[in-house]
């Protein structure tokens, strides 16, 4: 066992974990079940989290590698009392079907909008390229990214 010390969703944590454990498992076994396991090879994106602000696949990241860093999971992006505008946009655009890939896509959109407040459809495609979805055909997911960007811009413009 090794000691894992990091900031998770803004809170410092200190967990004992096996040296060979991947971050997906560490997060899930500590109740952060919004991070999903879909392929465990970095291909589907269901396990995406933010590591020091950039999107990574937690299934191909040893938890030990993330120790000492800042981690944000889907639970840290918004909650039922204060959903993030991206989460609302996925709901309103009809982008949520089975919802298994949705947390990863929300994380990816969050990372995209942090870098690029006005993404084109093509930017959105690239941002979601590593997020396999078998339900939606991506059409409404791309709509959701655009809607989230519009709403974020409108909110900033109004402020």
């Amino acid at each position: 066992m090794i000691q894992f010390e990091a900031t998770v969703n803004g809170r410092p944590v200190r967990w004992d974990i096996p040296a060979g454990e991947f971050l997906t498992e560490t997060l899930r076994s500590h109740g952060l079940i919004g991070t999903k396991r879909g392929c465990e090879s970095g291909d589907c994106g269901a396990c995406a989290v933010l590591l020091d602000g950039v999107e990574v696949n937690s299934c191909v990241l040893l938890a030990a590698q993330a120790s000492g860093h800042d981690i944000v999971t889907i639970e840290g992006i918004g909650d039922a009392r204060a959903p993030h505008p991206i989460q609302e946009a996925f709901v309103d655009a009809g982008a949520v079907q089975c919802g298994f890939c949705t947390p990863g896509m929300v994380v990816a959109t969050h990372a995209l909008l942090a870098d690029n407040a006005a993404p084109t459809r093509d930017d959105a495609r690239h941002a979601l390229a590593g997020h396999l979805c078998r339900c939606t055909g991506y059409v409404k997911c791309l709509d959701a990214v655009e809607l989230a960007a519009e709403r974020t811009a409108a909110a900033k413009g109004g402020a």
Partner: peptide, 9 residues
């Protein structure tokens, strides 16, 4: 290469 999350790492 592959996808953005992988390219980030």
């Amino acid at each position: 290469e592959k996808n953005r999350a992988v390219r980030n790492r």
